[in-house]
């Protein structure tokens, strides 16, 4: 993929063949396609292999603590909504320990893009099962097989009120870059679950396993002129949306919640990729009276003024 202003000489510690290479490449392309500048972007990550991503590209970033990047990102966005805020974390970070924050960030329609590196395993800690691991899988913390049903992240997001829900794949970075650009442009919370293999610790959900199952939905209700995009898609060839197989069968109205929920629960032999659901709503920060005077860091600390302070004291007289 072509070079971008976000490239860095920092060498990732990821294993050769890790899906995170593809995810990072896609993200950089998405940023470039939207004409964004490195110093206007903040990437907040959690803990995990994939959460080291901010260390490897050039933009503001913050590698926070396990499960909490959405909360940190919320603080960044609400203090300065003019920054583009993206959260990147793994399936354990996002859907396990971070699940509560995902629910609330979604229902607030916080203008954050949430990219989840979903490899269905805890890789950095060496191979325990994750919230998305299939039932029955044997791992070091499930020696007799996982006895839990896995999370359905897209369905969870839909139920929580997310206004943009999509799934991509690390092994198709060009396609996924297009989805990322749409997610970033979306005014509000956008979940992009990105399927990826873990070459070291997940011997089941491999590239081949995915390739046999994924198919791309064609979003027939896509309306590119709507919404408060922070930039338009610079190159329409990004995101190769030629549907696989029967076009009619893979056609989907992303404005139809119930159809979206059906797709969101589809897993196993057929795994849909693409924009499952989208709807335009006011993002959370647009209703905050505290932001009427502009981003918080740009305001002088004493802008209450002596008179304003005196009026505050009057209330206690």
């Amino acid at each position: 993929m072509p070079d971008t202003p976000f490239d860095s000489k920092q060498k990732p510690v990821w294993c050769p063949g890790c899906g995170d290479y593809g995810i990072m490449a896609a993200l950089k392309q998405a940023f470039a396609s939207l004409g964004l500048k490195p110093h206007r972007i903040v990437i907040v990550s959690g803990i995990g292999c994939g959460s080291k991503l901010p260390d490897y590209l050039s933009a503001y970033g913050y590698m926070s603590i396990h499960g909490r990047p959405l909360a940190v990102a919320t603080g960044v966005k609400l203090a300065n909504p003019e920054l583009t805020v993206v959260v990147v974390d793994g399936d354990g970070d996002a859907y396990g320990i971070g699940g509560n924050h995902m629910i609330h960030t979604a229902r607030r329609n916080m203008d954050i893009t949430h990219i989840v590196q979903n490899n269905q395993v805890y890789a950095l800690t060496k191979g325990q099962f994750s919230p998305t691991t299939e039932k029955g899988r044997r791992t070091s913390t499930s020696p007799f097989g996982v006895i839990e049903e896995p999370v359905m992240p897209l369905a969870l997001a839909l139920a929580a009120g997310a206004t943009f829900v999509a799934r991509g794949a690390a092994f198709d970075p060009r396609y996924t870059a297009g989805l990322m650009a749409e997610a970033i442009s979306h005014p509000g919370y956008a979940l992009l679950d990105v399927l990826q293999p873990c070459v070291s610790f997940n011997k089941i959900n491999t590239y081949e396993w995915y390739r046999q199952r994924v198919y791309k939905v064609e979003d027939r209700s896509q309306d590119r002129s709507q919404g408060r995009s922070q930039g338009r898609l610079a190159d329409d060839s990004l995101g190769d949306r030629k549907p696989d197989g029967d076009q009619r069968a893979n056609s989907h109205d992303s404005g139809d919640f119930h159809a979206a929920m059906k797709l969101a629960r589809e897993w196993g032999d057929r795994i849909p990729l693409g924009v499952i659901y989208r709807r335009t709503e006011e993002p959370y920060h647009s209703s905050l009276p505290g932001l009427a005077r502009g981003p918080l860091p740009a305001r002088p600390l004493d802008d209450i003024g002596a008179d304003g302070f005196a009026r505050l004291l009057d209330g206690y007289a």
Partner: peptide
Amino acid sequence: AAACMAVGAGLTG
């Protein structure tokens, strides 16, 4: 979340 949000806001200045 509250504490993490405050840290996030602090990052912006």
